[in-house]
Design a protein around this nucleic acid. Sequence first.
DNA 1: TTGTAAGCGTTATCAT
DNA 2: ATGATAACGCTTACAA
Lengths: 347, 347
Amino acid sequence: MKTTIKDIAKSTGLSTATISKYLNNKPISQANQELIQNAIQKLHYEPNLAAQSLRSGKTNLIGLIISDIGNYFWGPLIANLTQIFSQSGYTVIVRSYYRNTDQKKKLTQEMCTQNFSGIILLADNAKDTSYQPFIRANIPIVVIDQIPNAMESTPVDCVLSDGYSGGREIAKHLTESGHQHVYVNAPLDDSYNIGQRILGITDSYSHAGLPLPMIEKSHRYTTPEAIKKYGEQTLPVAIHKHPEISAVIFTSYELALGGLAAINTHGYRIPQDFSVISFDDDALFKCVYPSITAVSQDMDLFSLQISKILIRRMNGDYSDFPHTEYIPVTLHKRQAVQDLTKKAVEE
Amino acid sequence: MKTTIKDIAKSTGLSTATISKYLNNKPISQANQELIQNAIQKLHYEPNLAAQSLRSGKTNLIGLIISDIGNYFWGPLIANLTQIFSQSGYTVIVRSYYRNTDQKKKLTQEMCTQNFSGIILLADNAKDTSYQPFIRANIPIVVIDQIPNAMESTPVDCVLSDGYSGGREIAKHLTESGHQHVYVNAPLDDSYNIGQRILGITDSYSHAGLPLPMIEKSHRYTTPEAIKKYGEQTLPVAIHKHPEISAVIFTSYELALGGLAAINTHGYRIPQDFSVISFDDDALFKCVYPSITAVSQDMDLFSLQISKILIRRMNGDYSDFPHTEYIPVTLHKRQAVQDLTKKAVEE
DNA sequence: TTGTAAGCGTTATCAT
DNA sequence: ATGATAACGCTTACAA
């Protein structure tokens, strides 16, 4: 038999109403506070969340919607969010729709009706409009990793890493290392984020009066495997056709996987044959030989900003709505980028 | 205003009891089934989970307890479990205690009282007894990745990868490739799993009449970072002291990270200086040069078996209790292991 | 097969 | 500051 507030009420001689008030930090006499506190400890009382939720209409549930939870790049983010929100009394529930559009619609519709206290939506790309039903249903929501095109008609809070700065950092590092002819491997999708990464690179090269980076064009790819395969196939072709290329930039982790696989297969030597640099870092990047130069996202800060905005909204504070937060990124200079200026001097 | 079964009742002219029966697949006349179905569609009815849970005493919640959700090795498992259980109408909630013993006790106690339909506990090591409160509370639970020492006094269902076979596979591959002097990098913890991995290796070498693998002894390490650091520090020392070592085995992903970092720092050439082989696979292992030979766990099958057992228990079927399920592992032969027999012939 | 009505554990209203 | 009581949306005897 589970302990309920009735038991606490009986044990203390108070009414359930008073116990409830105690639990919700409403004014209670000092004496009774201690009385209740003791009873709770003694009887091992834990509130029934279902009852609380049913009566109050608040679930304290945060829905985290990710197209494909299997994509482990986002693991640390999920971890952080789970931890941060649990500290504020919220429980994070992760839901995926596995890149199935029908399932996605069904999922969002279902979640709109389940009294989630807040939603975090990892948007697929800039065309993603699935945040809109939550706005309509008045459920606080933060869109992450993208800025939807529909922002203008339906404003929403966004948090994403600063891909543009990342692109500029990469370009700076490469130009300072003497790399004039650069190849950017990027599948054409409608990702705002990836678009910004590329723009950061091309802007820098353009401003520096250098030849514009060669950007691989392609069809759209949806699954991580397809993106990897694409990278694996296109890289050797480009290198072969354009021997002047001295550096390759992967615009995402999946492309890096594919590119590195191709590099291995074809026996390219990094960084002697060409330098390599990737967006999105991985624990192994800094361990392998040569270690892979990469731009990492700050998942801790990312999670923190998401939680800050969402909690503000859940508390009814919309004073700065809509807010877009860019999370700074960090370039890790490693062995995979060769300093061509030094090399020239040495020779 | 949310739609409730009352609205459906009014709209169809039936009672709420009948609607409830329809929702719970109890016998209903064909005509009314269609009537209700239509009303639900028209009014966009979605059941209130809190009310269902409160009344029925069932939450359909699965608690997944992981010491450190930030350790992304388990990301794919979380992903799979979330997906599999959602197909059966369960929602997975991941909870961590961040290697804090007090927090862990608090968490398990709290979860015991929250009517979880089932629990999946990723045990820390063989000494982990935190599954016991759930057994006492009659909450179905499956322990994964370990077999607790307390099994005998408190039986429990277990699912874990077959580390022993993995060890034997590794040993077979190494001996067939002519590796007689092998170094095993393993922090001494109380992990049943890691113990089995080591045992598989040593048993094989012992049965083959070869010199016993050299096993690094150490203190206990708790965090992934500490384990990595340990691997990074011990490997070069061992290699230096024992030049006869021709192959190094990492007993976990974290050790591989540390070991590879050390290899990079010290400029060892793999596999010329020594071969490398790791437990636990990573997407990058097969992409980098040289690709890293590794034993992978089958996370799909792992998740599936967990869900099968747990769902059986939640349905009250304890006919095969307690059950221990070993998930087969796969050795991926890659470039990091050199075939010394061929080399000998060539020379 | 269908309806009536009680009640799950909590919170909120309104007295006191 | 405290208490009596209704109500949240649903399930489940039990009766019809």
